[in-house]
């Protein structure tokens, strides 16, 4: 247990720069978005006219439409929360793919794991450290979004502002989990990050354009972004979606843990593992 806590503490401390950077970035963006609502509200008529002229594919990318743009949740979704999962996914992919494999590829894991921590305690210490980092980052972001709510005509209180952050947390956790799993299955961290990036981008694009096509709509249902919710009331949250995504994320973390327990630890300079199903024509 002590090994797990030590690993958690060091993981969190190592991520402090990223926590501050991303947290302050999201927080400042929140301040700006809430402040901007007053300007938007003052020009509501013109804005709605302009938005109505936009191609619906364009609007779909920002998750908005002319009718919902001036509602609190519509405004926040279009100008902030539709893009936050994608923006923060960069952090998720880097942290998830590097959680174990970064130290391994740099030749540090060999010595760390030789200390009496145990692979399980090390793995979950790292994972919980990452979870703590995400929560802290989102807390800073939420504070930013909430800071000017009292002076805003948006009509959202700090408690309501917390609700989309719950769904955002689950989205981020999903991307961390999938890139973590990929990193222990694929030959290198880079490949895991690339595959993770493809999943994030395709998830966003397919889910955003799903309304245009039935096939896209069907495909979007297996995409994580499809289940992202910008709602301002807990009662409006689709808990089945939320807990399903959370459950899948936990399952992926468990699979990554089981794989980590069984695999050899690489040394720096050993290169990457070969894909088990790769075909080498010279050997065939």
């Amino acid at each position: 247990m002590k090994g797990l806590l030590t690993t958690l503490r060091y993981t969190f401390m190592n991520l402090r720069g990223q926590i501050l950077g991303w947290g302050l970035g999201v927080g400042l963006y929140g301040i700006m978005i809430v402040q901007m609502f007053e300007t938007m509200a003052a020009q509501q008529g013109q804005l709605q006219k302009m938005i109505a002229n936009y191609p619906k594919e364009f609007l779909a990318f920002f998750g908005g439409d002319a009718n919902s743009i001036m509602t609190p949740s519509g405004y926040l979704h279009m100008y902030a929360f539709s893009m936050l999962p994608i923006i923060i996914s960069i952090f998720s992919i880097l942290v998830g793919s590097g959680m174990i494999v970064s130290d391994e590829e740099r030749g540090r894991l060999d010595l760390i794991i030789a200390h009496p921590v145990g692979r399980s305690a090390f793995f979950f210490g790292r994972f919980l450290g990452v979870v703590a980092a995400i929560l802290t980052m989102l807390l800073i972001g939420w504070i930013g979004f909430s800071l000017l709510l009292g002076k805003s005509s948006l009509g959202v209180n700090v408690g309501q502002m917390l609700v989309p952050f719950i769904s955002l947390f689950v989205q981020i956790l999903f991307y961390v989990a999938i890139t973590l799993l990929l990193s222990v299955l694929l030959p290198s961290r880079t490949l895991a990050a690339v595959v993770g990036g493809v999943i994030v981008v395709s998830s966003y694009m397919i889910s955003s354009l799903a309304f245009m096509d039935d096939i896209l709509m069907t495909i979007s249902k297996i995409m994580p972004y499809h289940y992202f919710q910008t709602v301002l009331e807990v009662n409006d949250l689709n808990l089945t979606w939320l807990f399903s995504l959370l459950g899948i994320s936990i399952l992926m973390v468990i699979l990554a843990w089981l794989r980590f327990l069984r695999r050899d630890i690489r040394l720096s300079g050993e290169g990457s593992w070969k894909l088990r199903f790769s075909i080498n024509p010279k050997r065939a």
Partner: peptide, 11 residues
């Protein structure tokens, strides 16, 4: 035990 690897990298 104490272990000293042949190749070491630190933070």
């Amino acid at each position: 035990t104490g272990y000293l690897p042949g190749e070491m990298q630190f933070y």
